[in-house]
Amino acid sequence: MVKLERLSSEAENLRRRLFDLREIEQENLRLKSILNFKQRSPLRIIPARVIARSPDSWSSSVIIDKGRDSGIRTGMAVINTQGLVGRVIESSGSNSKILLINDPSQGVSSIVQRTRQEGLASGSLGANLIMRYLPADAQIAVGDIIITSELSRVYPKGLLVGTVVNIGKEFSGLSCYAVVKPAVKLSDIEEVLVIIP
């Protein structure tokens, strides 16, 4: 009986250890991916961890663990290995606030990579972005890749924003819009890269 209890306790400890090791393995893979990206990319970047998220459902922002002391300033673009994440809106000594691209007050000047059609990809609090100000005969199709345009003052040109999943006509019929699925799963980000201009 005592031996059974000891073995059960040992099994429980091993299960807990296995869970911890799996978590470390996942973190290792993510950090390796960031390191590879940093080495290959021509951009000057600072990696940071997400430590908190927006406390309500009406905005989309995160807090990261790096700030002015690490060289981060307001207005800097934030990405991760998958694509565009957002921009820095506030920076204190040791942390910064990042406004994500799916926040409704955020707009990213974007272009369709295939046809160079320009538009504005705005956040809408949902999982997807809405690319607006497209003419009715815009050269855009489902599956098109959307990247940041050179007209954007905040974001460097060519950063991956997302993929078009749907196209619709505005109520007036004079313009159309595209629903863009962001390249980054914004609800799950754990590490980000801040671009130093």
Partner: peptide, 9 residues
């Protein structure tokens, strides 16, 4: 105040 401190508004 706690809530506003972490909001972008």
């Amino acid at each position: 105040l706690f809530k506003d401190a972490f909001l972008p508004s």
